[in-house]
């Protein structure tokens, strides 16, 4: 187990490294560069100033060298300055990370709480009307564009009914826990509904597979009631692949988070990455993307470990 974990950690570190180089290269290909943006903003800068600044920031060096400087600095905790906020990048990441964590954890929980029972019920009613109805609902949820869902929720609950706030994390000036929860309600609803379909289909498939196993028949044969078989035996076993898939799905969830945060003007990591890319804030975009990649890798690592913990039959070589 320990060896397997170390193996996976090394693999994850390698993927992070490759990804950081890729993203670093891609970001350099976005329009404009930091010094030219600066020059556009202050008419007194001469071409000589521009050249001097480029040399100062190392922008005249080849890509590989610039990447190496960024990497060594980043590893020692220096992620550079954010162009948009003029603060060190590292100081701007805290609140968005916390906001995104709140959003992701609550929508994951909400989606799982609705989808897992629904999936199990659909499997128990396999190929009956209730199964077909739940399946269709899952397909509908999968096919909903999450940004449109957010937009519709805002129009209904924030504009028409005026029950809930349309954007932000809290009322200006702060408003306590209830206020924060009210701000979280609509984005969480949009994200949870968008994830519901996938989660339900995973659970349904896992449960159908489990109910076909011989040991289910054995459990019935030795006299357990159907309810006992389902609740004590089948559900627990069907949950194993589903829990790991939920962890694997963190990357997909983050894609949803990015759009949702943009629609709801919710200041989290997704909006930060989007704003940074749109505002040519190279350092911030880079840090945000690396965090998102790290999160996805963490998800797949977690899935792997959970699988081993939940299913004692699995031994890692």
């Amino acid at each position: 187990m320990a060896r397997h974990l170390i193996h996976r950690l090394i693999q994850a570190a390698l993927v992070m490294l490759v990804m950081s180089f890729l993203v670093y290269g891609l970001i350099g290909l976005m329009p404009g560069d930091p010094v030219e943006l600066m020059a556009a903003g202050s008419p007194t800068m001469t071409p000589a100033d521009v050249a001097r600044l480029k040399a100062l920031y190392g922008l005249d060096q080849p890509l590989g060298l610039r990447y190496w400087h960024w990497l060594t600095a980043a590893l020692s905790g220096n992620l550079g300055f954010s162009r948009l906020s003029a603060l060190p990048v590292i100081d701007t990441l805290g609140p968005p990370l916390a906001n995104t964590a709140a959003l992701m954890i609550s929508s994951l929980a909400a989606a799982a709480l609705a989808a897992l029972p629904a999936g199990a019920v659909a499997a128990l009613r396999h190929r009956r009307p209730l199964d077909h109805a739940l399946n269709l609902a899952a397909f509908a949820a999968i096919s909903l564009p999450v940004f449109w869902l957010g937009l519709v929720l805002i129009i209904i609950f924030a504009v028409d009914l005026a029950w809930l706030p349309a954007s932000g994390v809290e009322t200006v000036g702060g408003g306590g826990l209830v206020d924060r929860l009210r701000h979280l309600a609509l984005p969480v609803a949009a994200l949870a509904l968008a994830s519901f379909g996938h989660y339900m289909r995973y659970m349904r498939a896992a449960m159908i597979g489990t109910l076909r196993q011989d040991w289910i028949r054995t459990a019935r044969a030795k006299g357990l009631s159907w309810a006992q078989v389902v609740l004590r035996h089948a559900l627990r076993n069907a949950m194993i692949p589903v829990v790991t898939i939920l962890a694997l799905d963190l990357g997909t969830l983050f894609s949803g988070v990015l759009v949702t945060e943009t629609v709801f003007a919710y200041p989290g990591m997704g909006k930060l990455i989007y704003d940074a890319v749109m505002g040519n804030d190279y350092n911030l975009a880079l840090a945000g993307l690396m965090l998102a990649t790290g999160l996805t890798l963490f998800g797949s690592l977690l899935a792997d470990l959970l699988y081993g913990v939940l299913d004692p039959r699995i031994h890692f070589r």
Partner: peptide, 17 residues
């Protein structure tokens, strides 16, 4: 394993020139 949409946003912002 990549975070799809963030990556697509960067790719979408790349300046072809």
């Amino acid at each position: 394993a990549l975070p799809l949409l963030p990556l697509l946003i960067i790719l979408g912002a790349v300046d072809p020139a």
